[in-house]
């Protein structure tokens, strides 16, 4: 039983890279498996099954404050409204909800969501999100060392 950190997002779509960038800062630094993933979140169910603690890091849709950090200690499902709306490509909310019903969700799940600004293909990470990436990495490192 281990801790698992997954940085979720497409590294080539602007601020969607927030999750993978946090993962890169943490890889090798903490006593946990650290993975980068993007695409179909349903594929994550096999990846996180068996972990004791799951930390998911993902970019969040713009809500007016790029770089703002949201930390959710998940005892319930993520709001499905957070999903991007393609039935053929399940997002994190669907993957978490499905995994919970299948009995494969780790007993403790923490989600860090970093509000993004621009998600253009080929775009760069905005300054506020880049700052937040470092902050989130430090907070996860501290949380897992405690």
């Amino acid at each position: 039983m281990t801790a698992l950190v997954i940085g979720f997002g497409n590294p080539d779509c602007g601020d969607d890279a927030a999750g993978p960038l946090v993962a890169r800062l943490l890889a090798g630094r903490i006593a946990a498996r650290v993975l980068e993933r993007h695409g179909d979140a349903l594929a994550l169910l096999d990846v996180w099954e068996g972990a004791a603690l799951l930390v998911l890091v993902d970019a969040a849709a713009p809500m007016g404050t790029p770089g703002r950090i949201h930390r959710l200690d998940l005892t319930t499902d993520l709001p499905r409204e957070l999903s991007v709306g393609s039935v053929h490509s399940f997002g994190l909310p669907e993957a978490v909800a499905l995994s919970r019903r299948l009995g494969t969700l780790p007993p403790r799940v923490v989600v860090y969501a970093i509000e993004g600004w621009c998600f253009d293909v080929g775009g760069t990470v905005s300054a506020a999100v880049a700052d937040a990436v470092g902050t989130v990495a430090e907070r996860i490192a501290t949380e897992l060392s405690g």
Binding site: E94, A97, L98, R101, L102, G103
Partner: peptide, 13 residues
Amino acid sequence: GIAMAASHGDLVK
């Protein structure tokens, strides 16, 4: 399918 998974988990898996 998510709601269905609670009672038909084997098929969903």
